[in-house]
Design a protein around this nucleic acid. Structure first.
Lengths: 160, 160
DNA sequence: CATATTGTTCATTATTTTATGAACAACCTG
DNA sequence: CAGGTTGTTCATAAAATAATGAACAATATG
């Protein structure tokens, strides 16, 4: 395995760089996962930074992110002190980890927010009250629907 | 309606600013939609920039984005030359518009990509071939699954 | 325990994204 | 059609995000 990326490696990395973009993750995270995904042998930080031509800092931090939601598995390599990694290839595990680490923490408790908004509602002038109440109700409906979509989507993945 | 945002307005705008972040849209787009969503009367560019304290350029461009996926409706106001807008509050319409304008165009044709990768496969050394084939197959499976999730999610919204 | 190796952290730099506002174009309006 | 109003565009500025790499911490090794 030379220090230069093959065409196939580039193609696969490109896929994951795009996915990283959609998920608001740094480009380097996509590169790291992409290369690991298409590598049959475990790679260490040095391999990754050399092949991807990214800095040691980016590599270390990128791996930290990937580990945080279980997209990458540490692997023991006999006779080598360095840490090696392979890509977790089971989609369900990654998605569950990602949702738990990156989605749920940012999913503010909507109940609180609804309470706050309803409290503010009483200060609204009479003329606007009806309209505003309808809008808040609508937001509540959207939230409930979104809340039930997520579990379903997770379930959908399960059939691996 | 004064030039200053009420607490309720701020609360609602905050919701849509967060949503804009998730969707990789500029903050100002979330602000604009949020204010329109909680305003019973149509607003013009001047209203929006004054209340949100954002520039005319941002306002114009933000409305352009919102119009592009139908999140905002132009409204005629008698005796006023300016353009007025209200928020489209039907979730399904917005989501459909968003997917059509912002998702589909970036959804590269996966068939092409698979063909490209399979062509590159024949150059792989014999030892790696099996592994690489499995990975490409896996990517293909993920893609197909994702392709069937999107229509389902759209359908899920329909029950408004 | 002295030295070497490996990984992490974080201040700085580079890059990308977003906002600004002046110039402009389009369009009323009298 | 001259003057005024409104919306858009786009070069530039500001802000946010990501990458870099040197300093450091942790650990192994002889």
């Amino acid at each position: 395995m030379g220090p230069v990326l093959s065409e196939l490696e580039k193609e696969v990395i490109d896929i994951f760089v795009r996915i990283a973009g959609v998920l608001s993750l740094p480009r380097s995270v996509g590169e790291l996962y992409g290369l690991l995904f298409i590598s049959s042998d475990p790679l260490c930080i040095d391999d990754l930074m050399r092949k991807l031509k990214i800095s040691k800092g980016s590599t270390s931090q990128g791996l930290k992110i990937l580990r945080s939601f279980g997209a990458v598995n540490p692997v023991y390599v006999a006779g080598d002190r360095r840490d090696f990694f392979t890509a977790e290839a089971e989609l369900r595990k990654i998605v569950v980890g990602f949702v738990k680490e990156q989605i749920y923490p940012h999913l503010e408790n909507g109940k609180e927010r609804m309470a706050r908004m309803n409290a503010l509602l009483i200060e609204e002038p009479a003329g606007r009250k009806e309209f505003v109440t309808e809008r808040i109700e609508r937001l509540n409906g959207w939230q409930k629907r979104a809340g039930s979509l997520l579990p379903f989507a997770l379930n959908f993945i399960k059939a691996e």
